[in-house]
Design a protein around this nucleic acid. Structure first.
Lengths: 107, 107
DNA sequence: CTCCCTTTTTCTAATTATTAGAAATTATTT
DNA sequence: AAATAATTTCTAATAATTAGAAAAAGGGAG
């Protein structure tokens, strides 16, 4: 499997964590909150589609809920391949980060 | 601090792990070994310079050793900023990956 | 009913990053 | 001197991200 970009990795992980509530805006917010980095909301959709095309995610259009506004949400869900890709990344991370110390926060 | 690319992250981590022996080729080999992904050796140098320009790494030209061939090695070393950046990434990873299960390897 | 507001996705142009691979550099060996 | 090996450097092609504007659709206010 080819190497995923950092954003793709973060998106996959967000979809996993958000479970049944993973769509563009919630994924964007989750990543922005956890990383504290500014990214562009629009820019989340391109890698999201790419991940779906590559078979890591499936997309389905959300049903109407009473208070809905805007375009229909596109919800995402991890495929087995997506879960497996995350598992591989996790294994690489465990090797790469082994023994890396906790760093004191600079005040 | 802006978000580092996946390659930049892997390079920084490799420099940390390789200690006094971190230069283009060893960094490339380490990343290739751990990730098992094919990347291009030449393609390691551009992000390496970029990380140095951004202040995460310092470079110094290696001294001649008895059996040297080729261009002088450029060794890299993490700056405090580089170590701090890795610490930040580690903290984000710990949040993002919390509770993610071990996946059985597909045979 | 019409207009505005909000939430959401889509699109586009500009910029930045990666890849592949060939070229250059230098020391050693033949 | 030529060949070889270990390195870095360079270049062109491709891919990815960013910034931000535009479009879609439903709800609510008047």
């Amino acid at each position: 499997m080819e190497m995923l970009t950092k954003l793709e990795e973060l998106i996959l992980l967000s979809v996993w964590r958000l479970k049944e509530n993973a769509y563009g805006t919630t994924i964007y917010n989750y990543i922005a909150d956890v990383t504290g980095k500014k990214l562009s909301l629009g820019g989340i959709y391109f890698p999201l589609d790419r991940l779906a095309k590559k078979g890591y995610l499936t997309a389905y259009i959300g049903e109407a809920t009473p208070e809905r506004k805007g375009l229909s949400k596109r919800y995402y869900h991890l495929t087995d391949r997506g879960i497996q890709a995350l598992g591989e990344i996790k294994r690489v991370n465990e090797i790469m980060w082994a023994d890396f110390p906790e760093i004191a926060l600079s005040i």
